[in-house]
Design a protein around this nucleic acid. Structure first.
Lengths: 208, 208
DNA sequence: CGCTCAAGTGACAGTCGCTGTCAAAAGCGA
DNA sequence: TCGCTTTTGACAGCGACTGTCACTTGAGCG
């Protein structure tokens, strides 16, 4: 009965609990039968809520898996915008915030990724989500560099950064999630900082 | 009656004609009412085919807009694999092939992009398609560089290249498609070749 | 406490994208 | 012209998703 220190209102607590329960139940069902062979109605039944509520909470079946995942939080960049740095530094900081959100149970992230990578609908949803992150990142970069958000270089930079991270995600999945995700993504940004000079990969004209 | 030199069989010709007609009719309807407010049944009726045929031809409603668009054709790279070059050179070559396919009527591409950028479902489909292109590109790069297709640097490079192009696409849309798409994408690859050294954008440690 | 109001929930009906099946139609070769 | 194969359209059905509406249930207040 004493305030446990974080939540306000029984309503919000029940809602949060229900969402967590639905996600758990859904992931279990997906693990067992595969994403597309499980209906929202089954998830709802097994979670003791109505299908209506599932859609109210998550909006779509895909978001049961992807909700909140891989979204850049601009506040992480804006809050510290006194501490300046290059866009890549900013990215690292934002990424760290995202990772802290994820790193709690990387096992869950692995389960999610397994389904995402094997189902077209989920893959599309993730791609779109990541794509949206590029826009967010672009706006942050534009502000930092005092350029238009639609500047070609800003857009390319933002999409390149996100692309690099996506490449890392892909690699991570290809190695059966062996290495901690955080390390993989860090190395991706390192590669970008070095300008992708992968022995003649980008330009052969570098050395005569 | 004389052979007009390209098509074989009445069947294939009718099929191709029907697909082209469906796409035209669909784009018109989309322009007028918006993508999601037009049903496949309406498109089918207006095109004098059955809904079944629309799905047989295009597989999904999204593909009526996106079919064949933005797909890298690996054959373009493999065919000329005697002529070697850096991965970026290969990309340019593949991109040129893609562009030649598109440049026929860039006006149509603009119409498509307008819808793609404003509808979530289409945006997701495009994102997924582009994402798939990264995998294709990764395989080509891996072969060129004699590395594993799952190599982190290969994956990052492939996704970065595609990301750069996506950034260009985004910029193109943001400028109301002013410049020819070909030029925009060329400049994206130029930026990559220069290593994204956008006045301290990537790394501030470059100059002390 | 208990009352009132607003917010949240579940049941229902309906739309639409998409899939599978099957008989009819149409191209193709002889 | 006559079979054979492929393609087509009609139909039935599934499941994701939306909107509506009565009902329940926390929240605020006397």
């Amino acid at each position: 009965m004493t305030d446990l220190g974080q939540e306000i209102g029984l309503r919000h607590r029940k809602r949060a609990a229900a969402m967590a329960r639905i996600q758990d139940v859904a992931l279990d069902l997906f693990d067992e039968h595969g994403y597309e062979r499980v209906t929202v109605e089954q998830i709802a039944d097994a979670s003791d809520v109505s299908p209506s509520s599932v859609y109210r909470y998550f909006g779509s079946k895909e978001q049961i898996v992807l909700l909140g995942e891989f979204e850049f939080d601009t506040s992480a960049a804006r809050l510290e915008d006194d501490a300046d740095g290059s866009p890549l530094d900013v990215t690292r900081r934002m990424l760290r915030a995202v990772m802290d959100h994820l790193v709690g149970d990387e096992e869950r992230t692995r389960r999610q990724m397994r389904h995402v990578m094997s189902d077209p609908a989920l893959e599309a949803a993730l791609a779109r989500q990541v794509y949206a992150a590029s826009e967010t990142l672009g706006e942050v970069f534009a502000e930092r560099l005092s350029r238009s958000a639609n500047d070609l270089e800003v857009q390319v930079l933002a999409h390149v950064v996100v692309g690099a991270l996506l490449g890392g995600l892909h690699h991570w999945q290809g190695t059966a999630f062996a290495e901690p995700l955080r390390d993989v993504l860090d190395r991706c940004l390192d590669l970008l900082e070095r300008g992708l000079q992968i022995d003649g990969a980008v330009s052969r004209a570098a050395s005569p």
